[in-house]
């Protein structure tokens, strides 16, 4: 553990509260005392919610599931950055030792027209599901699993496909992008299948359908600022966006 092991923090939390997708939201300020630096950011929210419940107030809604950094469920835009100040981690893997005693922490939901707020800090990311449903799959005969190495794949392709497949679909790329663009997410999903032999059959139709679905959801346009790559908890590379651009050109002008 870091040097801050065992110490406690007093914090001011400014949290976005919003009743539902239609209501106008606003910030609510909470004072927290005795927050252990060993807590995760979500555990700090658990403490706050227990306090709110014991006071007879409504708990703050926020998304979370595995709390191991692999499910892509947690979100939160913390002090101006998705998943907070650390690089390469999700909010559940962010620990309070990343903050100082007396800090004011501003917590907002992902902001995008395509991610409407459900309540407080929880946003509806089903736009991502609809993009996947439009073409982010392969049609295979089900049955017994093939023997390993039955289909030979070059190591470099396998590595790049794996890198793209590391995307957990949390939406930090959209939240970080000044244009609310979903290019990093969609390009990762297009890439992981375009790089592998199993993905070849539907390759051209897939990229066209997924880009069309992305545009239809109302995400913004990419301007290559690179904010998505910098904030991605899984380190998805901008190379995927260039690949998706090539894929769409290849599918359009064959």
């Amino acid at each position: 553990m870091g040097s801050g092991h065992g110490t406690e923090l007093n914090l001011t939390l400014k949290v976005w509260r919003q009743k539902n997708s239609k209501a106008a939201g606003s910030f609510e300020t909470h004072q927290l005392t005795g927050i252990s630096t060993d807590m995760s950011f979500l555990e700090m929210f658990d403490v706050l919610n227990e306090k709110l419940i014991s006071e007879g107030k409504e708990a703050i809604a926020f998304d979370h599931d595995c709390r191991e950094g692999i499910c892509g469920m947690c979100s939160m835009y913390i002090n101006g950055r998705p998943h907070g100040p650390k690089q390469g981690v999700t909010t559940c893997q962010l620990h309070m030792r990343s903050f100082k005693n007396g800090d004011t922490i501003v917590v907002e939901p992902w902001r995008s027209a395509a991610f409407p707020v459900i309540k407080d800090l929880a946003v509806d990311r089903s736009a991502f599901d609809r993009i996947i449903a439009s073409g982010g799959y392969i049609s295979v005969n089900t049955g017994n699993a093939q023997d390993a190495n039955n289909i030979l794949i070059p190591k470099t392709d396998a590595d790049e496909a794996f890198g793209a497949a590391a995307c957990i679909g949390c939406g930090a790329c959209v939240a970080a992008c000044k244009n609310s663009s979903a290019m990093l997410f969609v390009s990762a999903k297009v890439s992981q299948l375009a790089l592998l032999p199993q993905g070849q059959v539907e390759r051209k139709e897939r990229v066209k359908k997924m880009v069309a679905a992305m545009d239809e959801e109302g995400f913004g346009n990419c301007t290559n600022t690179g904010a998505c790559e910098a904030e991605c908890p899984k380190g998805i590379s901008l190379e995927n966006i260039a690949r998706m651009n090539r894929e769409l050109m290849g599918a359009t002008f064959k």
């Binding site: 400014k14 910030f27 835009y77 002090n79 101006g80 950055r81 100040p85 501003v106 907002e108 902001r111 995008s112 027209a113 395509a114 970080a176 000044k178 244009n179 609310s180 663009s181 109302g218 995400f219 913004g220 346009n221 301007t223 600022t225 690179g226 904010a227 910098a230 904030e231």
Partner: peptide, 17 residues
Amino acid sequence: NKKARPIGYAKIDGAAN
């Protein structure tokens, strides 16, 4: 792009990324 984020953030740390 403006339409894609109708409600902006209160705090943005753009320099970080």
